[in-house]
Amino acid sequence: MNSSEFIKDLNLVEILSDNFVVERCYTGKYADLSDEKEAEMISLMSKKHWREVIAESFQEKSPWLYRIIADAGRPMFLDMLDIPKNGLYLDVGSGWGQVCIPLGRLGNSVALDLTFNRLNILRSIANQEKVSLQYAQGNFLSFPFIEKSFDTIIFNGSLEWIGVGREKGTSIRKVQIDALKKANDLLKPDGMIYIGIENSMGLKYILGTEDDHTGLQYHTFLEERIAENNFQSQGRGEQLPSKTWSLEEYKEMISESGLELEKVYGCFPDYKLIRQMIDLRFINEELINGTPVTEHVGISGEDINRPLELNAMYKVLAKNKIAQYFCPSYAFILRKRGHSNGTI
């Protein structure tokens, strides 16, 4: 496979190699490490196995980041998806490769990320794993992908960040809907979109657990304009970097984008390190029958301190048939309008 099979206009990208292209003009940047640290890791991975480098770099100094990178639960959701073999897949915000590398074992996987060094780290990991990937540096909203070319598009922890670098005065919600519309355009007629994302009305946030993205309490469920004011007033920056929503708000956004919702799962402790994916159609019944769930603080990975009380609250919510609205995270499976099997 080469880049011409998924890039619409080669004049808008710079081809660095057979499998690495860079968008000539793009905006936005997201990284959980400094450029210097990423460059250091690239150098180390030329001499050692990537898992050894990750362990040496983060296991003690940043144990939560280490878990996110190394935990086998990160790509668990792929087992729940009907992904066609030998297809073309796009991982938006590919990060450390926990999703695009397993996809690369099924077919042709394109890793899209804003950060050049992060893609180089991913390339080192994929080479050691003997998985062939295509690498694309750029912004999903502007990258010149060919329409109707992808079988599967993944937004696992990336849709909430899609508004980073947006124009002043533009809402995150609008940018997220624009991203979903573009994903709709890029899908083949029978293609599928997966979104893993937090629930702004998650029970733990209502009880005071900090937002995963800003570290602020009682913040996730605020209306976007108020959330931005709250973010600015606490000296966190000039522009709110991310926004999550409630179940019904996600449904509205999906409908506005022209997509159909096929299925929703509640993810516990969250979508980052999934241990349970419960079909929302059955979640009240499962919780009433005593299925235990666990949750953790999204910015640190620490367990929520009162599991008995938390499960008791979920059981009461389930008896009132509303537990589906309070999961910590959701996994959404979307199709083009008219192509869903309508299981939700």
Rank of each mutant, 00 (worst) to 15 (best):
R173D: 03
G165V: 11
N156M: 14
Q176V: 05
G165C: 08
I146Y: 00
S142F: 01
L141F: 12
G157I: 10
T170A: 06
I146G: 00
V164W: 04
V175K: 15
F145M: 03
L159A: 14
D151M: 03
K168A: 11
R166A: 07
N156W: 15
S171C: 03
S142D: 09
F150K: 04
E147Y: 02
S149K: 15
V175E: 14
E167L: 12
T170C: 05
I154S: 06
Q176Y: 10
G165I: 09
F143P: 03
F155D: 02
K168H: 07
T170H: 04
F150W: 04
V164I: 15
K148V: 08
G165T: 10
I177F: 11
I172R: 06
F145N: 03
V175H: 09
S171R: 09
I146S: 09
F150I: 08
R166D: 04
E167A: 12
N156E: 12
F155V: 10
I153W: 09
I172Q: 07
G169Y: 09
V164T: 12
L159E: 09
Q176K: 12
W161M: 10
N156Q: 13
F143K: 03
L141A: 13
G169S: 06
D178A: 15
I162T: 02
F145Y: 11
R173H: 13
T152S: 07
K148G: 05
F150T: 06
F155H: 07
R173Q: 15
P144C: 01
R173A: 09
I146E: 02
R166W: 05
W161L: 13
W161S: 13
E167R: 13
E147C: 05
S142N: 10
R173L: 11
T152L: 15
K168V: 14
G157D: 06
P144K: 00
K174C: 04
T152E: 09
I162M: 14
I177Q: 10
W161F: 14
I177K: 07
I153T: 08
I153D: 03
T152C: 12
K174W: 02
F150S: 07
F145D: 00
L141H: 13
E160W: 02
T170N: 04
F143E: 01
L159W: 14
D151H: 06
